[in-house]
């Protein structure tokens, strides 16, 4: 829905631009460079010149950075040729906006409560620098670590990193010991305390097991985007980019190469799949 609003916006911009060009056309030759246009318009103020608008150049369309998606046929195994990750630009993340959180809750059938024992896959966090008082707003979820502490401590093998870098809990073998919750430095995991009914097809979840952000693995496998990224883009905040970190030509890799990205608690050397920009002291 939001997407189509965006489209309408762009069309509206184009329309008014076309209007402007057409009006200008009456008084002079149309060139895209505004300086030239003004100059000629002034000179030919009274002359009637017939012109044709040849091309309208779109100035403000931001390129879609979420083009790196899974193309794996669903009957083939995942492989380590890909590593799915996310890049979050905290400067673009709007304070007070919870679109990503809402979308996640909706996609995974979560209730959206925020008490200490409630499930949260993603939460908005405000960081405050002790030295300058500068505040940064950012979404925080499982960071999809390569060397994941949750996997290290899991006694059953339920916590695992899929070949393509997505951290998952196999709840068929999770015994609910909650060791992983203790080990995760990002407080990313939640324990389900109560019976659950009517789960979403792509988000089975139940009492007695641990769960966390799974990077919307079903959507990703089907060539889609994580729900949070989709929502952020639809809001036109564009603070989140999803893509393949192992593909040097994916927008996320290009962006990281150009501008860099930080890992939260990089001192732990977990090689997280989620990176942040704009974390200023």
């Amino acid at each position: 829905m939001k997407k189509s609003e965006n489209t309408t916006d762009t069309t509206a911009t184009n329309a008014s631009r076309r209007d402007f060009l057409a009006k200008a056309a009456v008084v002079g030759t149309v060139t895209i460079a505004p300086g030239v246009l003004l100059h000629q318009a002034a000179r030919a103020a009274t002359a009637e010149v017939e012109v044709e608008v040849v091309e309208v150049i779109e100035l403000d369309a931001e390129p879609d950075k979420n083009t790196s998606r899974s193309t794996r046929p669903l009957d083939q195994e995942v492989s380590d040729k890909n590593r799915w990750g996310m890049l979050i630009d905290t400067n673009k993340c709007a304070r007070g906006c919870t679109s990503c959180v809402d979308a996640c809750n909706e996609a995974n059938g979560l209730e959206g409560k925020t008490g200490p024992q409630d499930t949260q896959y993603i939460r908005k966090v405000t960081l405050k620098s002790k030295s300058t008082g500068h505040e940064t707003s950012l979404p925080l979820m499982c960071q999809h670590c390569e060397s994941a502490p949750c996997v290290d401590v899991c006694p059953t093998g339920a916590s695992f990193i899929r070949a393509d870098g997505i951290a998952l809990v196999d709840r068929h073998i999770c015994i609910g010991c909650r060791y992983c919750m203790m080990a995760c430095p990002y407080k990313a995991r939640s324990f389900v305390h109560e019976d659950i009914k009517n789960q979403k097809l792509s988000a089975p979840r139940g009492k007695g097991t641990v769960e966390a952000c799974n990077l919307c693995v079903t959507r990703v496998d089907h060539g889609g985007l994580p729900a949070c990224v989709e929502a952020c883009t639809a809001e036109n905040h564009n603070a989140m980019i999803f893509g393949d970190l192992k593909d040097p030509n994916s927008p996320i890799s290009i962006e990281l190469r150009k501008y860099g990205g930080k890992q939260l608690r990089s001192d732990l050397a977990l090689n997280t799949g989620v990176r942040y920009q704009g974390l200023n002291e």
Binding site: G96, D102, E106, G112, K113, K124, V125, P185, R265
Partner: peptide, 26 residues
């Protein structure tokens, strides 16, 4: 049921937490 009431609830929690900013260490 839950989507819209859920959104309101979250906005409130967020507003409350923004007055007392806290988070993980960078």
């Amino acid at each position: 049921e839950h989507s819209s009431s859920l959104h309101q609830q979250l906005q409130q929690t967020l507003a409350a937490s923004e007055t007392s900013a806290k988070g993980v260490n960078q």
